[in-house]
Design a protein around this nucleic acid. Structure first.
Lengths: 212, 212
DNA sequence: GGATTAAAAGGAATATATACCGGGTCAGGC
DNA sequence: GCCTGACCCGGTATATATTCCTTTTAATCC
């Protein structure tokens, strides 16, 4: 989905990546420098104000940013520093579930990440998680590596990694998705299914591969 | 980037996917049914008119569509590969079990192979198999891709692909290996374990990855 | 400290997208 | 044929984003 604050956050991040302020970014895109002012993001009556699609288009054009990259900026695990990155190794978080390894934006915090040889440039936003414990047998065994692709579209039945606002990071099977909640089924036998309100979800990313 | 006609094309496609017309989609999203009319997409003076970001957000919300899916709809060759990454091509055999497609060394013979985006050149010997049928649930589902690496060392407990002299190609779990026989356990519930004499084995290769 | 510059707030004017309205077209049902 | 409903066009009114302008704040340089 597309939320008001994330669109604006993505614009701020895009400006920062390109070494500009929001007003500088607007000017560079041929817009009025005040277009992205924080004071223009919420109307006087509290109603949220959105940037127009055309303004977003101009900003992408001006910075040479692909729409997919912009989506990454809106998606927390899609990190800003990946935009211009060149490295090809995939970050590996070895101890999922403890809520660490990610910064407050849900991005992998540097310093806590190892790397694993798997294709996928930083632009893809792909990262890896190492499974600890055997609670997800028979699907994943202790030590298995799962590859997470934040930009892959997610369909019902897909295996996903979910991070909650509480900081839990765990694999699930996405079952039912409504506008307010998502239903997650466990991978493996030891856990039970959950119905989680959307606002408690930090991010969801699809699991595309798993080591055997 | 984000172009005017692609945004509108994506809205049309999104409507069609959900079995609606553009006006029906607008109504469903709580917008005026004429919002997406073709007559509203270009102003009288020829100036392009864009849907607002808020309208796009409402449409995604109403159809339960992720922003990533919408981007895919905007991308002309709606990339079908669900890998989400850029990767080299790996030979893919789509109909395992027929005994063909491999040369006498057990490596993929050219001419009969499709390709799938996964890293690994033919020099690595890496190839892919597409799972047909659900006999290996819950491990592999119909359509899953498994990556086979003939040069990886094999240990007990590993998941392997075995080709017999009879020409069968199938995934197994390697269990016990003696000088004369190997014991193979099934992947999934529908099959039973086998003890196979070594001389009936054409080759064994380890499964290193599986698409999810 | 004073000058300069960039950034941002806040208000008014303008530009642009949406809502609303009436009418035309087309397909399906009676 | 006639009705109904969905869809779309074209015009006007309204809502909303942007522009333009002025003022304030903050950082930098002299």
């Amino acid at each position: 989905m597309l939320s008001h604050d994330r669109v604006w956050a993505a614009i701020d991040t895009l400006a920062k990546i390109n070494g500009m302020s929001p007003s500088g970014l607007a000017r560079r895109a041929g817009l009025d420098p005040t277009t992205f002012n924080r004071s223009k993001r919420i109307a006087g009556d509290g109603r949220p104000r959105w940037p127009s699609t055309e303004s977003i288009s101009k900003v992408l054009e001006a910075t040479g940013t692909a729409i997919g990259d912009f989506v990454m900026l809106m998606t927390p695990p899609a990190m800003k520093d990946r935009l211009g990155g060149t490295a090809a190794a995939t970050p590996l978080l070895q101890t999922p579930g403890n809520g660490n390894g990610f910064d407050e934006d849900g991005l992998p915090a540097s310093g806590r990440w190892d790397e694993v040889p798997f294709p996928g440039s930083r632009e893809d936003g792909i990262f890896a998680l190492e499974v600890s414990g055997n609670s997800m047998l028979p699907h994943y065994r202790d030590g298995d590596t799962i590859i997470v692709s934040p930009n892959s579209p997610i369909r019902r039945g897909d295996r996903v990694v979910v991070r909650t606002r509480a900081g839990d990071v765990a694999p699930w099977i996405l079952y039912r998705r409504t506008t307010r909640t998502i239903e997650l089924h466990p991978i493996g036998h030891e856990r039970t299914k959950r119905v989680v309100p959307i606002d408690e979800i930090d991010w969801i990313s699809r699991i595309t591969w798993a080591s055997q």
